[in-house]
Design a binder for these strands. Structure first.
Lengths: 242, 242
DNA sequence: TCGCGAATTTGATCAACATCAAAGCGCCGA
DNA sequence: TCGGCGCTTTGATGTTGATCAAATTCGCGA
């Protein structure tokens, strides 16, 4: 790691100086001046697991960056069945541009740090600065890719393959460096069994049984229900179906 | 229908004059000058059902507008299982900006008319004209909404609800005016039973049985395997689960 | 450290959908 | 008009994952 000489930290808002979103996130598309303007109207907050960030069919007047933790995006059927339709990791942008009403629920599944800004401010900035809109298009396209990958998992994979795919998804998002040859990784599950089931279109019991099977076969180890040690990424991939 | 006096048709490229994409599609974001430039490099073509437009994992150097017909977007698993991850109707934009290689297959499921342009031309135009990128962001966001709706269908609905949801999706795309109170609509299925199964994550047999059940219950009538008459949109919605 | 409630695992049974098999029908060319 | 091929429907049976039920384990505060 070398110090970036091209950036004068003194010109960057205090709030943003150590912020992840300024690198990988949408704020990377802003110049110092814009960052100053936006940061004045923005605020940081920490929330606990289970905190509802956006209710389904609720009017929203702010956007956020996820700075740490995991947020689940949910959709429900009228009789209570639920499906998780996306997971947002840092430094993802949270919110649906150009729509007043959210058609998604958003809830923290771990401790989450957010940086939020008024919708209007972002939309104004988007008009002046094509770079921001470009960045947003990039993230949206990549979310669309992810959603379509997951449609294959939901529609065509077996329960065992679904659970393996889920573990790989988490492993790759939490430890992006992990390579299949390397073999091992370790992480804390950011979701409960119930959430995993809602993400995979399964029941908790089926999720639990498949995890037990992976454990019995020595592919993973689980400590304290949450901490997962992947003994062999390669074998996990083999079980993921694709 | 009134004539639009604000547009001088003489200034619009012949190719574009009667083109659907110039209204709802991405070309609506272009001014006459840009339209002229793009149309010089673009070409129209008609293809038959079953024509592969883009192969999975294939390099692509052009984008297209769907002018008529239906294109299915597919993803496959290594052992041959397939999932349709999206359907494109006119005047949708076809292609994945900012990526050389497609991770999707695209295939015509009906007679399809396409207007294609070189990737480079579109990308150049996108840099000069924020309006085009904005339009593309809009379509991408709406495709993401659709994909997430479909994830709920794939993950949490029963076979009966899936088939009803599918019929509604087609009805709404082919006859957008159809209202639930109106009651009736009619359309030709743009997909074979095998395609419907791949879209819904089911087998052909299950799709067939569910269609039979809908017919037996008087919700729909089917003529010649392809032509569907929805007797009651309201009852179809009731069966779609949400 | 103990004890309680919630989350998870495990077990037994059931239902939905898949699979395997065969018959029916519609379309198209000879 | 006839015949054949491919698509669709229908039927019988099998398997996967859901459901119902109970036992364990974990997290956490007293």
């Amino acid at each position: 790691m070398t110090t970036r000489k091209d950036i004068h930290n003194s010109d960057i808002p205090v709030l943003c100086q150590s912020c992840e979103a300024r690198h990988g996130g949408v704020c990377a598309a802003l110049d110092q001046h814009q960052l100053q303007a936006l940061s004045k109207a923005s605020w940081k907050r920490k929330v606990e697991p289970g905190t509802e960030l956006v209710g389904d069919a609720e009017a929203v007047d702010s956007y956020s960056n996820v700075l740490s933790g995991v947020v689940k995006l949910t959709k429900g059927l009228s009789d209570g069945r639920q499906q998780i339709v996306g997971l947002q990791f840092a430094p993802d942008f949270l919110g649906r541009p150009f729509k007043v009403e959210s058609r998604l629920g958003a809830e923290a599944t771990t401790d989450v740090t957010l940086c939020s800004f008024p919708k209007a401010a972002v939309e104004r900035m988007m008009k002046e600065s094509p770079g921001l809109e470009h960045r947003l298009l990039q993230q949206t396209l990549s979310e669309l890719d992810d959603a379509r990958d997951w449609m294959v998992t939901l529609g065509r994979k077996t329960a065992g393959e679904k659970v393996a795919s889920f573990l790989l998804l988490i492993a790759r998002n939490i430890d992006p460096a992990a390579s299949p040859e390397g073999g091992k990784t370790t992480f804390d599950l950011p979701l409960t069994r119930a959430d995993i089931a809602d993400f995979l279109g399964l029941t908790i019991e089926t999720v639990s049984r498949q995890l037990t099977k992976l454990r019995a076969d020595g592919v993973i180890t689980i400590e304290n229900n949450r901490h997962v040690i992947v003994e062999s990424l390669e074998r996990l991939e083999l079980r993921s179906g694709d």
